[in-house]
Each structure stands twice: as C-alpha cells, then as structure tokens.
C-alpha cells in the first residue's frame, strides 16, 4: 500500500466507504435534518402564506434578522388541551404496554419452550396478523364493537344483557385496538430473548429447591429483562404518537396527542403549532428511545 493510500484508509473506514456513504447520507438527509426543520418551524409563527408560517430570517433594512418566537410553546403550556393530551397519551401508552406485557409474556414464554417446527409455526402465527393491513384489523374491531355489532348481538341474543353495551368510541375500544395491533411487537423480542434461556439454569434452580414461582421471579424474569425492555419500548413509544386507533375506535371521547397533532396540521393548518407539538413529543420520548437503543446495542454486542 502506498503511504498516501494508507493515510486515507486510516481516516475513513477502509474500502467500505462506498458501503457507508449511501445509507449514511440518506438517513442524515431524510431522518435527521427533518427533525431540525421541525424544530425550526416550531419557532416560527403561523401566517396566511405559502407555506403557512413566517420566515426564519429576513432582511430588515439590509440587516439579517432572525425571527424566533417561543409563542407556540407558551401556547402549549397555557391551553390545557395540549397538556391533557400529552398526559392522556402517556397514560394510555403506559397502561396498554402493561396489558401487552401481561398478556404477551406467557405467550412468548410458551412459544420459546415449544420445540421443533411447531415453534416456527406458532411464531409465524403471532407475526402474521401484523403483516396484514393495520387498518383492516382496526376496521374488524369496529364491526365487532359497535352497539349493533357482533359482540352485542351475541350477548343480547344469549340474554346476557338487555341493552347493547357501549364499547365503540370509548377508551376501552382504544385499549383493545392497541393491544391487538401491538401485541406481536412485544412478543417477538421477548421470544428472541427467552428462547436463548438455558434450560439447565432452571433445572439447577429446581435442584437447589426453588419452586415454580421463585424460579420465574429469580431466574427467568431477571434474565429476560432485556427482551422485556425492548418489547415494552417497541409498544410504548409508537403508541404515544398513535393516531389511527384513537381516531377510529376512540371517537371524540379519547384525547391523544397524535390526534391533536393531526388536527393542528390538517384541520387548522397551523404548522408551527403542529411542529411544537411534535418537538415536545420527541423530547418526552427521548428517554424511552435512548433506553431502546442501549438495549439494541447491547443485544448486538452480545451476539458478536
């Protein structure tokens, strides 16, 4: 290698340069820079213009002047709608993550303990629904949950209830929809973790006198913590910003920040406020996202 080539190879990641650059540039351009723009526009003011916000800087008498306004953030603070929406989103996300965990853990555990082709089949059965259209699945629940829907018809014809139970357009329906949609996202990483659990550890614990409950609490659960965190974050983070489920199943009764953002943007055409809403959401999600990352990388290193 000539000295010049060696110098270049030292500075850049080797001959892999052509491999690194395309995805790197793509992600910088279409994932990172957009966030900066969102932040920038959240500091602008709404205006009747094309695009509908004031410019970030302009020349006032030949002097470059930045126009930065925190009015949108103040607005978010003063109008209780936003505060309530954030709180309610976080609450709904937390509760549905918990439900998913309680339902999903035994399922993941069961699949991980199964042997042979049945295991792959069960796994595929868990994944399959998440591959069918998400809208279609929400739509299916609309048909089931309506006042004159199938569940109510069955219950009434069996004489369990006289009047239809109101399920559509309630938070209950939102929980059903979220758990239904996001359950596979919790099961998958958890399964991947549990399947690696060495059965001999459990046998050793039994040998040392541990019962089933203490085996679970002291061996299985601590060892699967990584999978639990990854699965929970895969549910919690996107649910905080969920729009379709509260829109279709929650009706006007459910307040979620994704819906608010959508409304600000599409109905009010207030792009700066929508951007401020998104920025605050991102800040709120920063900790969970970091947690998710840490786990992802730990998993990657463990495999290396």
């Amino acid at each position: 290698m000539s000295p010049a080539r060696r110098k270049i190879a030292w500075r850049l990641p080797g001959q892999y340069l052509l491999v690194v650059i395309p995805p790197y540039i793509w992600l910088l351009l279409f994932f990172v820079i957009p966030f900066a723009i969102v932040f920038k526009i959240s500091l602008a003011e709404s205006a009747i213009a094309q695009p509908p916000y004031t410019a970030f800087y302009e020349y006032v008498e030949d002097v470059l002047t930045f126009r930065v306004s925190f009015a949108n953030y103040l607005f978010l603070l003063t109008d209780s709608l936003y505060f309530d929406a954030y709180v309610s989103s976080l609450r709904i996300a937390a509760i549905s993550t918990l439900i998913c965990l309680v339902v999903g853990y035994p399922i993941a555990y069961g699949i991980a303990r199964t042997q042979g082709p049945l295991q792959s089949l069960l796994l595929m059965l868990v994944i399959l629904p998440s591959w069918t259209s998400f809208l279609v699945r929400i739509y299916a629940w609309m048909g089931l949950l309506r006042n004159n829907g199938i569940i109510n018809s069955v219950l009434m014809s069996l004489g369990v209830v006289d009047e239809p139970i109101r399920m559509m357009n309630t938070e209950f329906a939102v929980y059903i929809g979220i758990v239904y949609t996001y359950l596979p996202f919790l099961i998958l990483p958890l399964y991947a973790n549990l399947v690696k659990l060495d059965n001999r550890l459990l046998e050793a614990a039994t040998d040392l006198g541990a019962g089933p409950v203490s085996r679970f609490l002291r061996i299985t659960l601590p060892l699967s913590m990584g999978g639990v965190i990854a699965g929970c974050m895969l549910v919690f983070i996107p649910v905080v910003g969920e729009f379709v489920i509260p829109e279709l199943l929650g009706g006007s009764e459910t307040l979620m920040i994704g819906k608010v953002l959508w409304g600000e943007f599409f109905n009010n055409r207030d792009w700066p406020v929508a951007s401020a809403v998104a920025t605050v959401m991102l800040v709120l999600l920063l900790i969970p996202i970091t947690l998710f990352h840490r786990y992802q990388f730990r998993e990657m290193e463990a495999n290396d």
Partner: peptide, 14 residues
C-alpha cells in the same frame, strides 16, 4: 419506534 406522525410531519416540512 418513532411515531408515524412525527416522521410524516418532519418529512413533509423537509
């Protein structure tokens, strides 16, 4: 994990 509304909004603004 990024919520869809954030990705959508940010890309549109870009």
């Amino acid at each position: 994990v990024m919520p869809d509304v954030i990705i959508g909004l940010s890309l549109l603004l870009l």
